[in-house]
Simulated scan of single mutants.
Amino acid sequence: MTITEPAQWEDLFTRDVDEQPVQFVRPADTDRPTWSVYEAAVYVGSVAAEWDGGRPLWRVQGNREAHRDLDDAIRCLRRPSSWTREREQVAAWARRLLADETLIAVDVETTGLENAYAVQIAAVDRRGTVVFNEYVQPNAPLEPAAVAVHGITPARLAQAPAFAELLPRLTNVFHGRVAVAYKMDFDRGVIERELLRHHGEAAAAEEWLARVRWEDAMVPYAVWKGLWSVKRGAYRNQPLGGPHDAVADARLLIVKLEQMAAAPSTSPW
């Protein structure tokens, strides 16, 4: 059942959120789009729908949050009591990163989603200034699904340098730095794959990677947003939301760090 179906707006309805049933009950003393929320017959909070010309906006009563997705409003209500403390820890982590003059935000666009090679590598400093941005000749096929995401075509890469040509400058930019990425294992893994192909041995690749301090922003950002998934038993990962251009996504990551570093309030919205 979707939130656009008429049955969704009845006085009493049930909706599965992360495979767990949630009961919605409209109070008897109102005809407004407001529902009390129950799980296993236990009251967990209230939500109210607002229209602003598009999809309904779901407000979680009791705080300042609003969500386009009703499921996210329920995930907000499911937060563990430790969330405030965990969010403060994330804020402190983000402040430490932004205070480090060596910080760079890194993003890599690739030939595909698995065992992929780089087609664009970018890094910006903590002020958003570009310190590295190059398209890369991958010497590997580009998957149509990847091209549909980032728009980098074989024609665009026809004159691009190979990774080996870029490696000396990449080394100068990365070594001795703190590199933060969104889903760090993916971006670091692409660079590792390029190094393995270049050097032909794992030891050389690991030695290069070890001279960078890697940080992942995906899990901290999920904690900061605080949308709890009972299915995963963890905060739900969020999309970065960038345009899938390596420079723009790296700059957006700096913006997200600045948001996380801001003094915690009762809500991140």
Results as ranks from 00 to 15, higher is better:
4 T>I: 02
4 T>S: 07
5 E>A: 14
7 A>H: 10
7 A>P: 00
7 A>S: 07
10 E>S: 10
11 D>T: 12
11 D>P: 00
13 F>L: 02
13 F>G: 04
15 R>K: 13
16 D>A: 03
21 P>N: 09
22 V>A: 02
27 P>H: 12
30 T>N: 10
31 D>E: 14
31 D>V: 15
32 R>F: 12
33 P>T: 12
36 S>D: 15
39 E>I: 15
39 E>V: 15
40 A>W: 11
40 A>P: 07
41 A>F: 13
41 A>C: 13
42 V>N: 14
42 V>M: 10
42 V>D: 13
43 Y>L: 15
44 V>F: 12
45 G>Q: 01
45 G>I: 14
46 S>H: 09
47 V>W: 04
49 A>K: 01
51 W>H: 11
53 G>H: 13
53 G>C: 09
54 G>Q: 10
56 P>T: 14
59 R>T: 13
61 Q>S: 13
62 G>M: 07
63 N>P: 11
64 R>H: 12
64 R>W: 13
66 A>T: 08
67 H>G: 01
67 H>I: 00
69 D>T: 08
69 D>E: 07
72 D>Q: 07
73 A>Y: 05
74 I>R: 01
76 C>H: 05
76 C>F: 06
76 C>T: 00
77 L>W: 01
78 R>T: 14
78 R>K: 09
78 R>A: 13
80 P>L: 06
80 P>F: 02
80 P>T: 06
82 S>N: 01
82 S>D: 05
84 T>S: 09
85 R>W: 00
86 E>F: 02
87 R>K: 11
87 R>L: 00
88 E>T: 03
91 A>V: 06
92 A>Q: 01
94 A>K: 00
95 R>V: 03
96 R>S: 09
96 R>M: 06
97 L>D: 02
98 L>D: 08
98 L>V: 08
99 A>T: 00
102 T>I: 05
103 L>R: 03
106 V>E: 03
106 V>H: 01
107 D>E: 07
108 V>C: 14
108 V>L: 11
109 E>H: 10
110 T>K: 12
111 T>Y: 05
113 L>S: 08
114 E>V: 15
115 N>F: 14
116 A>D: 08
116 A>M: 01
118 A>Q: 07
118 A>S: 04
119 V>H: 06
119 V>A: 07
120 Q>C: 02
121 I>D: 00
